[in-house]
Amino acid sequence: MKHYIAPLLLVAAAAPSFASDLSVSVELPRLQVAEYHKPYVAVWIENDSNKVVSNLAVWYDVDMRNNEGEKWLKDMRQWWRRTGRNLDLPVDGMSGATRGPGTHQMRFSLEQAQLQNLPAGNYRLRVEAAREVGGRELINLPFTWPQTKTTTFKQAGNSELGAISFTINP
């Protein structure tokens, strides 16, 4: 009996629902430093065995000649290890230019976020920032999938990242 229930649940979770989306808000703090470079930032989702299930965004110097901006991607150490080094960059819809201080909103449909077939379980949204002549910070937002009603997960960084929030809109 149990064998039948699991796949049914999966189908239910993956069933198209018109409003389904995710939104992510990333605040980059304004820093009082002599030399400021916009940070490299990556946003992705991992399951509870550290496997990447969704790459949402990577902001880096995409426009430098000879792809020289890729030189610093490895400074987002976790992202580089878990997924970056296996990607062929730039990736459409995911790679983008670096952004300055302020709050940046992103919205993804389940399809865009590669989450249509995500099995029920424990996951975490990870946001990592690394800045030239600056520091590095990694924020983890644990969540369970699926959610039955609109739910927001929040956390704040204390050096390279400000307020981070993540909303699942089932």
Binding site: N67, E70, K71, W72, L73
Partner: peptide
């Protein structure tokens, strides 16, 4: 020891 990019 761990590098990204091309022609490094």
């Amino acid at each position: 020891t761990q590098l990204s990019g091309e022609n490094r």
